[in-house]
Design a protein around this nucleic acid. Sequence first.
DNA 1: TAATTATGCTACTGCAAGTAGCGTAATTTA
DNA 2: TAAATTACGCTACTTGCAGTAGCATAATTA
Lengths: 184, 184
Amino acid sequence: MQESTSPGAGRPRADVTAEVFAATLRSVHEFGYAGATMDRIAVAAGVAKTTLYRRWPSKGALITACLVDAFGPAPLLGEDREAVLTTAIRWGAARIGDPGVGAAFAGVFTDAVSDPALREILTNELQAPYLRVLQDALGESEQRVRFVIDVVMGTLLHRMGISGEPMAEDDVEALIAMVIGVFR
Amino acid sequence: MQESTSPGAGRPRADVTAEVFAATLRSVHEFGYAGATMDRIAVAAGVAKTTLYRRWPSKGALITACLVDAFGPAPLLGEDREAVLTTAIRWGAARIGDPGVGAAFAGVFTDAVSDPALREILTNELQAPYLRVLQDALGESEQRVRFVIDVVMGTLLHRMGISGEPMAEDDVEALIAMVIGVFR
DNA sequence: TAATTATGCTACTGCAAGTAGCGTAATTTA
DNA sequence: TAAATTACGCTACTTGCAGTAGCATAATTA
């Protein structure tokens, strides 16, 4: 969206978004959410800190954008709701297990509790798309889908936060079975 | 534990723990986790900031202690596992809905992701007691109980973080039904 | 009265988010 | 080629908070 507000004058933006996102996840993975300072991310990405702020209004916004990129579109494969849920949950668990993603998610998430502006970014940019797509794929009410998202993401993040490790496979399968049970 | 390392000499500690905890929750409720600075908490409690640090080693430790106090012992009432789970989950949801508690929990939780020392405090002081008691009351393996705690607390906190509001009653009941389904 | 311990207070360090301003590089348009 | 334009890197700065140091003082026991 809005890559060019002007027709075509001036120095073009350097194509460093991918490097910045990668550097962000690397920094979070290595130093934790709080330890991943904007200075560090900038250095790791080979970019000036001011450039980061020219593109993203805050650290929370940068990390959210990074998460949106890291998750991407959800794979909603399968013929029935059970299959769709199974693949989606496995996919979500795997993404949260990717280096830095879980910690980044948990961090931005909690910042959002105290920061309404960030909460709106998080809700609109990250959650809303999945909410809509899932609602459509499952044929369920918004309330029910919202509930499922809370259960799945909440559980995965809680495990990540308490143990510092992503959830093991057998527990993910238990989570899938439990959620499927709701829709039966 | 260890309220008096010395027999009885010197000025006694002022009995301000209750005021500090109350001021902590008030501050978190009003300003959010990040906005609840140690200075603000101290002023709200009518205590010097240095006094806070004389009693709790860090902000995270203070908030965790505050949460331990706010939750207290879990009411494990009921004759069968379903009843126990139902009362326990309703109770947890209500506590998280108490002013400041949900935000404080979410905040300290995410700080813990980046801070192993705090994670240990959180795990030992807050989670471990409930884990033990629930394991005993439900007669289930540690893995299963841990899973249930992840599901319940994760879901409630995720809702709190995304919406800024505690989970509504009917969703809590859905959560209870879902968890009970696991044990059947 | 002396020893002891906790408190309030002021001042400080360290660090990270976010900002301002400058000189300069890479484009488009005339 | 020469403006005009826009993004960049860089340095330096402000602001705010966690956590610390040191001192005078209050409240207790021996």
